[in-house]
């Protein structure tokens, strides 16, 4: 039983770190701030969620799991809020999203 739990938690840890890497790669490659917010969201929700649930399985039924659950719940509430605040600040200061354009320089060519 314990081996099964260990394997399950290791799978969750590996999946979580894979999603964190994918999100970080998206953070680098995406052309626009609003697209990068999506990539950062992947690392915040999926990456953190899977890793912390993997740790919770390792922690078993102790205070450690309660603390990890508190961290997970707090992260799941605050990362969307901070992403929303960022989008709101960016859009209210006039940063136009790249809607349907290939990337930044074609946007300049079209608008100029």
């Amino acid at each position: 039983m314990q081996v099964a739990l260990d394997i399950l938690s290791w799978l969750l840890l590996i999946a979580g770190s894979a999603f964190a890497l994918i999100g970080a790669a998206g953070l680098i490659r995406f052309p626009d701030v609003y697209a990068r917010m999506h990539a950062a969201g992947i690392t915040d929700t999926l990456g953190a969620g899977l890793i912390i649930s993997g740790l919770m399985i390792q922690g078993g039924f102790t205070l450690v799991t309660v603390k990890l659950a508190a961290i997970l719940i707090f992260l799941l509430y605050t990362s969307p809020t901070s992403t929303y605040a960022l989008a709101n600040a960016a859009y209210s200061r006039g940063l136009q999203p790249l809607l349907g354009k290939r990337d930044a320089d074609t946007a300049e060519k079209e608008s100029s």
Partner: peptide
């Protein structure tokens, strides 16, 4: 805004790293 987003992601990852 990219910088704020990157620093926010960095901070969230620090939480995971410490855990």
């Amino acid at each position: 805004y990219d910088r704020v987003l990157a620093v926010n992601t960095f901070g969230t990852k620090t939480v995971l790293l410490i855990a």
